[in-house]
Design a binder for these strands. Structure first.
Length: 633
DNA sequence: GTAGGGTTAG
């Protein structure tokens, strides 16, 4: 039988739903307008209108969407009214509120879940374990320790001490709110733990930089899931131990476990850090085979990995093939172009990004400012610095000031850079003064360098890099007594110069070299080859630049040191051990030295090879006698 | 219907 309900009170807002009696005698809606007030009431008073309509038409209350009833009445005096409705339709009250709590906890304002939880207590609704889990979820989202502790106390009263789910959430809450000690106490006291409990503790210790504690737990845990291995691999990466991350990943593979999407991100990040291109490529293939191509975070990490391994083109391919890009994808690509000295391309990419409607963030501007400073685009850099706050409401952070000082000082605008530091609203840090010092090295300004070092001596007294630069400036001006004083200062403060170290991967094996290295098995061959190459370089006009050697010693001695710089040894090793024409990739822990830079340009021509060098700041791609940095670095 | 992980810079 079909009933057609008359629209009674409000013909404009209530459409005409139809009731249908089914064969077993129950009555259901068969046709209705989803936009009707019946399903879209927005306030307790509209709800009451709907109820009036239902009563007039003898329609059961059970047709009401109860979750909507709950959310409309959650924060008003109609709370008891909603309770009555749930009671009438025989629906366990707490389950309806739980649904509501869950959606609040997962919404953009999780605090609503906490408010609703307070309402439940006020109106004597007895929470169950699900109620607690949803409100705890909100507390974790908000890092709200105060309410979290409250819920914890209440849970104890309710007797949920042995609920493993909730215990795990509490441990997670304390740890993520910075109370790792409290979390560990709870963890130690727990009568029962599962793999999730252990994973939470491992992740949180690693997040707080205590990789040893994480590692210890990982060794102790009775059983490990892929997530446990992943937490540990990611932990090593976060704590600046990419080598350990890769070793552990290999062990995980050896144990026959398959990497999931998060493992892939962690391993790729480790590859990016140490420039492990071969492994990175293998993981990329594995990721594609596993169907992870559409995972944005994996794509973003792939872009970063290829960039940091010197394969700008491969990064571009990944970027171009993404159907959906986030601000991270664009920022990573912009930063990559900057590192490779392609400033104009970085700026063009930024314009494209803005055209697609993606809003930049603070990191995007760091990339843009890097691009400008690596290529000397002073005016563009100034524009970006103004634009970031004016057009995008992003307040410059200390890193942005650091980039600006770097930009100005490299370009030789040292006095302006100094004024910029004086006028900045933030307290200048070591990076800022270090940038000024770097500019002084390029432009041989002793006076300003001495001013910078006073601040650096205070802000970061154990960083050897700054003293080395100052000593370099003195040596360059042949002020040997001053250079000696700097070295004495270093000795007095117990600061040692970080030895230059270069590495190259051949046939999957990493070969590391330090200056004047004699430990490599092929050392004789390398030195002989270098002598040979040197003859050819001299014919091309190479003159050794001994001013980069800090010591006041004989020229011949200086040349010998210069010829055995780690990057030169790595390069010669690469030339001997790879087929002609193959690109040689070298990684250096410090900045590439000026003499090596000049030599590499000529060598790229002599041996007809592309040589890609990643130093601590950027990439140099040597090809046909020139470098991609256009000698501005 | 409840718990644990990941990306750009620094």
């Amino acid at each position: 039988m079909l009933h057609c309900l008359a629209v009674l009170s409000s013909p404009n807002t209530l459409s005409c739903p139809k009731l249908h009696e089914t064969s077993n005698g129950t009555t259901v809606w068969t046709s209705y307008d989803k936009s009707s007030l019946l399903y879209n009431f927005n306030s307790p008073s509209e709800l009451k209108q709907v109820q009036a309509l239902l009563i007039k038409t003898s329609t059961p209350l059970s047709v009401l969407p109860l979750s909507r009833v709950a959310s409309v009445c959650a924060f008003s005096s109609s709370f008891p009214h909603a309770q009555k409705i749930f009671h009438c339709v025989n629906k366990p009250e707490v389950t309806v509120w739980n649904g509501c709590l869950r959606s609040f906890a997962e919404s953009s304002s999780p605090f609503d879940a906490i408010l609703l939880f307070c309402q439940l207590r006020k109106y004597d609704v007895l929470p169950d374990s699900f109620t607690c889990s949803y409100v705890l979820k909100a507390c974790v989202q908000l890092l709200d320790l105060l309410h979290g502790r409250n819920v914890h106390d209440y849970m104890e009263k309710l007797g949920f001490q042995s609920n493993l789910f909730l215990q795990n959430m509490i441990v997670h809450l304390y740890a993520s709110c910075g109370k790792i000690g409290d979390a560990k106490l709870l963890f130690d006291k727990m009568h029962q733990r599962d793999v999730v409990t252990w994973n939470i503790m491992i992740t949180q210790f690693a997040k707080r930089g205590d990789i040893n504690a994480a590692s210890q737990l990982f060794k102790q845990m009775p059983e490990r899931s892929v997530r446990s291995w992943t937490a540990m691999v990611a932990g090593f990466v976060q704590c600046g131990k990419p080598k350990e991350a890769i070793e552990l990943f290999m062990e995980m593979e050896g144990a026959g476990l398959r990497a999931n999407q998060v493992t892939v991100v962690a391993v790729l990040a480790a590859c990016a850090d140490i420039g492990a291109l071969d492994l990175g490529r293998r993981i990329h293939e594995y990721s594609n085979r596993s169907g992870y191509q559409r995972n944005v975070r994996i794509c973003n990490t792939l872009i970063d990995m290829y960039i940091k391994c010197g394969c700008l083109e491969a990064a571009r391919v990944v970027f171009e093939n993404m159907d959906e890009r986030t601000i991270v994808s664009w920022s990573a690509m912009i930063q990559g172009l900057a590192m490779h000295g392609q400033a104009m391309e970085a700026l063009e990419l930024f314009s494209k990004m803005v055209q697609t409607g993606t809003k930049p963030n603070g990191v995007t501007f760091i990339g843009l400012l890097h691009a400008c400073s690596h290529m000397g685009l002073v005016e563009k850099g100034r524009e970006f610095f103004v634009s970031m706050s004016r057009d995008y409401g992003i307040a410059p952070r200390i890193e942005h000031y650091g980039c600006m000082i770097d930009l100005l000082s490299r370009a030789g605008l040292l006095e302006e850079a100094r004024q910029f530091i004086k006028n900045m609203p933030l307290k200048p840090n070591a990076v800022v003064w270090g940038a000024l010092l770097g500019g002084c090295r390029v432009h041989n300004n002793i006076e300003l360098a001495e001013e910078a070092i006073v601040h650096l001596n205070e802000l970061d007294p154990h960083n050897d890099g700054y003293y080395v630069v100052l000593s370099n400036i003195y040596a360059n001006a042949k002020k040997w007594e001053n250079a000696a004083k700097v070295r004495k200062l270093m000795r007095d403060q117990g600061v040692k110069k970080t030895p230059g170290q270069s590495s190259i991967t051949v046939a999957g094996l990493v070969h590391e070299f330090v200056a004047c290295d004699e430990s490599h098995p092929q050392v004789k061959e390398i030195y002989a080859s270098w002598e040979n190459l040197l003859q050819q370089l001299r014919l091309k006009g190479y003159v050794p630049n001994t001013s980069v050697v800090l010591l006041d010693i004989e020229e011949a001695e200086k040349e010998k040191i210069l010829y055995h710089h780690s990057e030169k040894l790595a390069l010669v090793f690469g030339i001997i051990n790879t087929p002609p024409g193959e690109t040689i990739r070298i990684m250096k822990n410090l900045r590439v030295c000026e003499d090596c830079h000049a030599a590499f340009k000529l060598i790229s021509d002599v041996v007809n090879r592309e040589i890609v060098v990643r130093d601590r700041n950027r990439f140099h791609c040597f090809k046909n006698g020139t470098c991609s940095c256009k000698d501005y670095w």
